[in-house]
Structure formats: C-alpha cells, structure tokens
Design a protein around this nucleic acid. Structure first.
Lengths: 179, 179
DNA sequence: GAATATACGGAGGGAGCCTCCGTTTTGCAA
DNA sequence: TTGCAAAACGGAGGCTCCCTCCGTATATTC
C-alpha cells in the first residue's frame, strides 16, 4: 500500500562499509602519495573494481572526499564577508592540500554536468560577490569564477607557498576595491 | 698543437637532425596532447631511447623547448617596466600553453639544481622588481617569486581562462601599489 | 675502405588506468 | 531457517606510459 516504486531494498552492509573505507583511504592517499587510484584501493583493502563501482571517475571520488570541506566553506559564506571568506578559504586550502580539488570542478567549463557540490559552492560565492558589488566594495567586472580562479591559483600547483599566499591575497583584495 | 683535450670530434649529423625533430615534435605535442613522451618520440619518428638520450628528463625537454620563450621574456624585462612585463608574460602564457613549464622551475624550491634558464628568468624578474620598489611603485613586501607565482596561478591549471586573466592581473597590479 | 667512437631503436619490466565478468555475499520472503 | 535472486565484490587482462639497457647501425676519421 505504501511503496509504489518497484522494490526498495535496504542497501547492503558491505557496500556501506566499503564506501567508508574508500573515502578514508582516499583522504590519506591524496594528501601524501601521488594520488594513484590503485593505491587508494590497496590502502582500503578493497578490489580496484569496487573502487570504480563506487566512484566511476577520479572526480567523483575527490568530490565525495571533500564534500565536508565544501559544506564548511558554504556555511562560512553565509556570514556575508567576502574578504573574510576568501581568507578562510585560502587557509583551508593551505592546511588541506586536497581541498583545491573541491574548487576545480566549479571552474571547469567543460564539466559534463554541474555536480551538486560545485553548484552549491558556486552559488555561495556568487551570492557573496553580488552582495559585495551591491555594497560598492567590489569592482563589478570581477565575477565569482574569477574569485575562485585566484584562490586556486594562489594555492595550487608547483611553487605554491602557503606562507606567501596570504600576502598575495591581501594585495589582490586591495586591488578589488572599485573606483 | 692546438687541441690538448683528448679527441674533439665533429658531432654526428643524425644527432643534430634528431634533436631538432624532437624539439619540433615536443612543441606540438605539449600544446595539444596529454604531453606523453612516447607521443613526442612517435611524432618525431624517432625511437624512445633516442628521446631519452637527448633529454634525460621531462624537465630537460621542456627547458629546451621553451628556452627561446624565456629569452624573449628576458629581453622584454630589459625595458624595465614591471607592469608591462607582467602583461607580456601573461600574454605569452595564454597563447603558448606550455610556456608555464618554463616558469615552474623558478618556483620550485626543491629543484636539485638551479638551471640556467630559471636562473636567468629569476634574475630578470628580480631586477624589475627591485627597480619598481626603488621607484616607489611596488609594495616592498612582495618578492620576485611572488610575482612569478601569481603569473603562474592566473594562467595555469584547471579553469584557467585567458580571456579573464588579463583583468585579474589588472586587479592584482592595482593592489601592488604601496601606501 | 676499414676501424671505432657514437648514436639509434625498441624490447622489456614496472606501474597505473579502466573494463568486464565469474564468484561471493546479503537481504528478503517463504 | 532455508533458499534464491539481486547486489556487490575482486582481480585478471588489455591498454598506455615511464624509463633502462644493450645489440645494431652509421658517421667520422685515418
């Protein structure tokens, strides 16, 4: 009388367990190792096939791992302080190297589909940015994507130096004022 | 009577020819393909072993390919205009994706040896930066490495968008003024 | 034209990516 | 409980890339 959908089965226990193991392993491996997916599977003591079934693409795994970080940044964005938010985001990226992975998809124009994570992230930043523009605190020709790009650029790639990126963000924020 | 060194032989013709082919092939492959070294060798119609003999590491190949670009930027730096130079560098990177590879080594603190290319590049930027500081046009707390970092960050990695990076550099340069 | 230093090519071993499918486990109904 | 089909598991296997090593080919030199 209740379930009109075919047959809702309880998810299997091993499925849940393995997913958890994989996420845990991925966090470790992404932070140190070269980030090979096979290494993640090994660390999780799970077959490589299992990894791919849970997370069909590398992206999917990244997204899942850093969903929590995204949520935190999203919450922080509620406060409505653009400059403060960018500093917090930078901080987060500095301490948690892999965090950048969560930002990437937002910027990838070619992404086959806008995932929920990146959509939420993008929306949060967009809101912040719009408020700042409305308040006359931000050059209107700078978009939310631009802001993400800079954050990513400052903390990503070879030569990224956490001890300097704070200063560089400062410089950038200075330049962001209109007029 | 002249050569005290053992036996100076003329370099073989095929050696020179192959080196040229490899550089040409590398330029093409780095710009489009995934940048696999095997692809470079194939494109050059040369054995993989030959590639490795000429360029023992990926870095070595990159460096050779972009040595000319570096020289151009170095020349441009002679003009002594920091802002103009950064714009030119950005432009170059936008049109020639692989150019970033030439900048990377400058930023890599862990590089086992400071190559000539990166040393020249670093020196050129350092000079520009010092002049700008002396002229009171640049915050003295920003180093030459910082400048490179930003250039790299704006044009490198996922989401890099040549059409936006010009504006972002503008913003950054605005923020660079002291006071 | 021969000798020999020099360069060439690619086989081969290691590793990662991803797919596919036979085997095992699990939830559910009888 | 027991049985069974759905769901999940694991890893072999086919592909590509990385890099080394060494037998073969060739340009220079005498």
């Amino acid at each position: 009388m209740c379930k009109l959908t075919p047959k809702p089965r309880k998810p299997r226990a091993d499925q849940i367990r393995n997913r958890e193991r994989l996420l845990e392993a991925a966090r470790k491996v992404f932070r140190s190792d070269n980030g090979s997916l096979e290494a993640v599977a090994r660390q999780a003591e799970v077959g490589i096939g299992t990894l791919y079934r849970h997370f069909p693409t590398r992206e999917a795994l990244f997204q899942a791992v850093y969903a929590r970080e995204v949520a935190a940044l999203e919450a922080q964005a509620q406060l409505g302080e653009l400059a403060a938010w960018m500093k917090a985001a930078l901080e987060m990226m500095a301490t948690k190297g892999g965090m950048v992975a969560a930002l990437e998809p937002v910027l990838d124009k070619d992404a086959p589909f806008f995932t929920e994570q990146s959509a939420r992230m993008g929306a949060a930043v967009g809101r912040l940015r719009d408020q700042a523009v409305a308040a006359g605190e931000l050059r209107p020709d700078v978009t939310a994507e631009d802001l993400m790009r800079v954050l990513l650029g400052l903390s990503y790639g070879p030569g990224a130096d956490a001890s300097r990126s704070g200063l560089l963000l400062e410089v950038f924020l200075d330049g962001l004022k209109p007029e």
